[in-house]
């Protein structure tokens, strides 16, 4: 997770506008979003409903186009969807006329057209087993599976095409807490085994802390920004039961909740007033290291006081 190596994904000054319904000025959902995703990193993005998370993910997937700005993947500009970027949609998006296995095989066949049918099947089955499906469940149609099982099929399909980047749009939003926990564990295990890079949207702060290396915080729209990048300084492997006892857990959690409940509202307005937000990378924050002596390698990273956020200071400079 070294910050020095070349990033897999480099998002630069991404802006998305939608035409307003009454034909006046277009609505700017977010503006000048810039961030990077390193190879092998697990990054979550959090923000209020409607701030444009799905829109960013769709642009990364190639299903939507930015109004301005670029997304580079391995230094090449993204244009259109690609098998290098697997997507797990919020509503699973399985093809309902195919069995679970066939759904995964659909992906595998698209990825490896030259493979024999038996090889495709074997590969698909392997990935279904990885998420705990098999022994008969793979023969069932999506309508005969529970929500959690469908989500697992969808994750298996995305992992089975072995993309460089996996994009997950609120994958556990519709699941109960228990199922959610099981699948989170499976996701982490598969991520560990395969060394994938994952970009995931979530509404759940605890889920984000449990899963990610880094959390991107988005301010409220319109004119939303990717304001901060919060590093989760909690060693892996993490378990749901033990993580809350880690000394960094609550500083991080409080920091995130504070952002969502109060600071996210104000940022976009300030950003709009402070003029040029181009090339403004989200500030890296390490709440876990707050009031801890900084190591030399961390010297350039600013530890921010939860109560006296440094961010507001930085961003206000230049205003008026």
């Amino acid at each position: 997770m070294s910050q020095v190596s070349k990033p897999l994904i480099n998002v630069q000054n991404l802006t998305r506008q939608f035409p307003s319904p009454d034909g006046e000025e277009p609505v700017t959902v977010f503006e000048n979003a810039s961030f990077e995703i390193q190879r092998g990193e697990f990054v979550c993005i959090i923000g209020h409903s409607g701030c444009g998370k799905s829109t960013i993910l769709n642009i990364l997937a190639g299903l939507d186009e930015a109004s301005s700005g670029v997304v580079l993947m391995e230094d090449k500009e993204i244009s259109g969807p690609s098998l290098d970027r697997g997507v797990v949609f919020q509503n699973y998006s399985l093809l309902p006329w195919m069995s679970a296995l066939k759904n995964v095989m659909f992906g595998v066949r698209a990825r490896y057209p030259s493979w024999s049918k038996s090889k495709v099947k074997e590969h698909a089955y392997k990935h279904l087993s990885m998420v705990g499906l098999g022994e008969g469940a793979e023969k069932r149609k999506p309508s005969q599976l529970s929500g959690g099982m469908r989500q697992r099929v969808s994750i298996a399909r995305a992992f089975a095409i072995e993309p460089k980047l996996l994009l997950l749009d609120e994958p556990f939003g519709a699941l109960d807490a228990l199922t959610r926990g099981t699948i989170q564990d499976e996701l982490i295990r598969v991520w560990d085994d395969t060394g994938q890079t994952i970009f995931m949207i979530t509404h759940d702060v605890d889920e984000a802390i449990l899963l990610s290396d880094r959390i991107l915080l988005m301010s409220n729209g319109p004119y939303a920004r990717v304001a901060e990048s919060v590093v989760i300084d909690i060693p892996r492997p993490r378990s749901r039961a033990d993580i809350i006892h880690h000394k960094n857990y609550y500083p991080i959690r409080n920091y995130l909740v504070d952002f969502l409940t109060s600071r996210s509202k104000n940022i976009s307005v300030k950003a709009a007033n402070c003029g040029d937000t181009r090339d403004l990378k989200p500030e890296t924050v390490r709440p876990g290291l707050f009031k801890e002596p900084l190591s030399t390698s961390d010297a350039e990273l600013k530890a921010v006081d939860i109560n006296h956020s440094g961010l507001t200071q930085t961003q206000l400079t230049g205003a008026q």
């Binding site: 969807p81 690609s82 098998l83 970027r85 697997g86 949609f89 509503n91 093809l95 990825r111 095409i161």
Partner: peptide, 24 residues
């Protein structure tokens, strides 16, 4: 959503028509 599934799997127009749209 199903068309998007076809797109993210880089299916050609013809394959999209026969493998996704026709059965749907």
């Amino acid at each position: 959503d199903w068309v998007n599934v076809a797109k993210t799997h880089e299916l050609s127009t013809l394959r999209t028509a026969f493998q996704v749209i026709l059965p749907a």
